[in-house]
């Protein structure tokens, strides 16, 4: 028997987690959308952010200071991927995978060679916790809003525009005197710093961190960006301003968690969660493509041909 009230009770939790993953999606937005660099580092740097935050808090650091160090650690991870790509000529996806794999070991070391570490809100002063879920939602959204404002400013500056130009057209960027290698490394560091920040927030929210906390982060981040984009386009059409694009990524994160919540509530087997995730992301990735194809003459002609063939068959 499905009880709607259990779903409603779980709702605030989904919103809080979705907002935290929405912050991760903002970080991914820099590499995936602005730099057009498929960066798989994020699965690792998310867990690094979580591990550093938890361990420093356990060591007695205030949570905010722990999170600053977590951001720096994430930026270092992005730096490594950037250097693997620009200095050693390793392809983007491979460079990211290499850093991600390396981070798995490093994250285990950070966690004191244990697969997980608890950081209880009873013992430590945390920035947010699922114990006070409504407050957690507000705090996560404040972080997201501050980041969106910062992005809006930075990517409107000369330096930020150079990064956007690098992502859009490398030949043009170089011809205009932009050091594209520097832009790539800088943007990847920035991106992974934000991803680590969201990892630190999630670890505090759930009260522990484990080494697998970032598994599939890239897919969740992409899902948030794409779901947000598809829906925002449905509401606002093609005229999407930058801040709308960013906000929609955060909203996409929240929607993703709500969708997952409904899947859980429908008592679909939890073992199949990753399968559902992949299917949902594939559907949302396909929507823009299919929509474009629908307007495409090949597609329409083929449809018309099929129709004509059917008619001919009937008449014969």
């Amino acid at each position: 028997m499905l009880d709607i009230s259990t779903l409603l009770n779980a709702f605030p939790g989904y919103i809080a987690q979705g907002a935290i993953w929405g912050i991760m999606a903002l970080g991914l937005y820099i590499s995936y959308r602005l730099l057009e660099f498929s960066d798989l580092t994020v699965d690792g740097s998310f867990a690094t952010g979580a591990a550093v935050t938890v361990m420093l808090i356990i060591m007695g650091w205030p949570a905010w200071a722990a999170m600053i160090v977590a951001v720096i650690a994430g930026m270092l991870a992005g730096l490594v991927t950037g250097l693997l790509h620009t200095m050693l000529g390793i392809a983007p996806i491979l460079a990211g995978i290499l850093t991600q794999i390396a981070l798995y070991s490093i994250n285990l070391h950070i966690l004191g060679n244990k697969p997980n570490q608890a950081v209880s809100v009873d013992k430590y002063d945390l920035i947010l916790s699922l114990r006070t879920v409504n407050e957690a939602i507000v705090i996560a959204l404040i972080f997201a809003a501050a980041l969106i404002a910062a992005f809006y400013w930075f990517f409107g500056t000369e330096a930020g525009s150079a990064i956007r130009a690098t992502g859009c057209n490398q030949a043009m960027a170089k011809a205009q005197g932009i050091n594209i290698n520097f832009c790539k490394v800088f943007a990847l560091a920035l991106s992974n710093g934000i991803v680590a920040l969201s990892g630190g927030l999630l670890a505090q929210y759930q009260g522990f961190s484990d080494v697998a906390i970032g598994r599939g982060a890239i897919v969740i981040g992409l899902a948030s960006i794409i779901i947000g984009e598809v829906l925002a386009e449905a509401f606002f059409g093609k005229h999407m301003t930058f801040w709308l694009c960013l906000s929609s990524a955060v909203i996409g994160g929240i929607l993703y968690y709500i969708i997952m919540g409904v899947v859980l509530w429908l008592k679909l087997p939890t073992n199949d969660m990753k399968l559902f995730t992949a299917i949902i992301v594939a559907i949302f990735l396909a929507v823009p493509y299919l929509k474009k194809n629908f307007k495409n003459s090949f597609f329409r002609l083929k449809l018309a041909e099929k129709k004509a063939a059917k008619e001919a068959g009937k008449n014969a």
Binding site: F154, G156, E158, A159, G160, A162, I178
Partner: peptide
């Protein structure tokens, strides 16, 4: 020229 944090 140097690209800084001024508006683009």
């Amino acid at each position: 020229k140097k690209r800084g944090l001024g508006w683009e």
